[in-house]
Amino acid sequence: MSMMTHPLWLVGFRPFFALACLAGMILPFSWALIFSGSLPAPTTSFSAIQWHAHEMFFGFGWAVLGGFLLTSTKNWVNIRGYHGAALIWLTAAWLIERLGMSFGGQWPAPLFALSNNLFLGSIIGMLLWTLLRHRNRDNYRDNAFFIVMLPAFLVAKYLILHGDHFAAGYNMAIGLFRMAFLVMLERTLTQFMKAAFQAQILRQPKLDMAIKLLGLLMVIEFALPRPLTAAIALLLAALLAVRFIFWKPQLAFKRIDIGIMYVGYLAIVAQLIIEALGQLFNQVWIGSLSVHIFTFGAMGTVIPAMLIRISKGHTGRKVVFDGLDRIALYITLLGLFVRVIAPQWFPERYPMWIHLAASCWLLTFGILGWRYIPILLQPRIDGKEH
């Protein structure tokens, strides 16, 4: 078996879900150690908090989103998809970016800029090529949202690393990931609820489109007047909450593998409400609540469940969440509690909550990495090539 034909390089989710497990273990825990002074901050030209935000969105977040989109886009337009050398290139570019983000402070500016944009520029170009070239074969008309959103990630990335625009950058990153989640949850939960409970959930095209259009507007919230941002956030939260009621949560919460995705949905609603209150009343919460209710509440809950589901289903295995899978999901819910809720009650113990929350991610993604990286390195068990 040559390197090019190794199972790891057959489909996009394989290398990038492996990297996501490693990043989910290492990056939050490294930040906890940097925050407490136990580990020196990376030698960079930007602050440690900028490093942390960038690495969670563009290191961890894009390992997941990249793996998901490389896999799903090929299915949406019915093509073979990127494999072999293309995936090796993207993986190397992702690793080079991590190197530059941690040790590139003394690098010449052009070299750092290259290291910092090689991965995202390459993968966005490749995804756009797939979506645009095969547009007439696309099963989903609303993939037009991805064509708009994907280049915007490059703007958010730039803003995060430039101190004067840091807040605009992370708000834009949240807005873009929120959009990806809104599109993905709409599609996947319809399928999951039907498969698990033979239940149809409300799909009203006008409501779904209104939600996505408002979500797209929230991507540029930093450029809008504060009262308008608050109004859009509250309207989007209200529409999502109404739809949630018709998505049969009483059934979903009977199973942790689906219920946890509903928790992620509710976290998006909560984040929008908190964002609106901040815009209207300058309400301040402990520990960047608006950011972390999204990162721990939406990303931290939905991503492990999807990682398990895709890793099993796309390697020919039956999609059943066993005991250890469910334990990993409960640990990530504990991480959400200790990072978002506990600090509001006991703010004086804030450093402890950060360490506990990071430890929850270390455990969750440690379990997932231990279980699924070996699977990602093996051929499918059903005899299919990819």
Rank of each mutant, 00 (worst) to 15 (best):
L90F: 10
M126G: 06
G259S: 08
E221R: 14
R80D: 14
W62K: 00
T44E: 10
L69Q: 05
I327K: 13
L362V: 04
G287Y: 07
R371T: 02
G100W: 08
S102Y: 10
A92C: 07
M306D: 00
G335W: 07
L120D: 06
T73R: 00
A63N: 04
A168L: 11
L376Y: 05
F181V: 01
F13Q: 01
L240S: 08
V219D: 04
V64F: 08
M193L: 14
S36W: 06
D208M: 15
G335A: 14
A357E: 03
P15I: 01
S72V: 08
I268W: 08
I293A: 04
R98N: 12
M299K: 01
F192R: 04
A92Q: 03
Q283N: 06
E221N: 13
D382A: 10
A238Q: 07
T73C: 11
M172R: 12
L22E: 00
M126T: 02
A233L: 07
G264W: 08
F246I: 05
L70S: 04
G59D: 06
A92L: 14
G12D: 00
L87H: 04
G84Q: 10
L236S: 07
P40W: 07
N75W: 06
R371W: 00
L127V: 02
A53L: 12
L99N: 09
Y158M: 06
F321R: 08
A196F: 11
F119C: 06
D325P: 02
M1R: 09
G297N: 05
F365D: 00
F119I: 04
S47I: 03
F16D: 00
L224F: 11
I123K: 01
R98F: 11
H314I: 00
R255L: 15
G366Y: 01
G323I: 12
G61S: 12
T229W: 09
I381V: 15
G264T: 02
L266F: 10
K74E: 03
A63W: 03
I303D: 01
D138N: 15
F68D: 00
G300H: 04
G12Q: 01
V340R: 07
M126F: 11
F35T: 04
M25Y: 03
T130N: 10
T130M: 13
T71Q: 09
Y350A: 12
A32F: 13
V291E: 04
V338E: 12
A233K: 06
H355Y: 09
F46M: 09
I274D: 10
A63D: 04
L324N: 09
Y140R: 13
L70N: 01
L70Y: 12
K312D: 01
D138Y: 03
R14D: 00
I260P: 02
A196I: 03
S359V: 11
L8N: 01
S36K: 06
L111M: 14
L111H: 07
A144R: 14
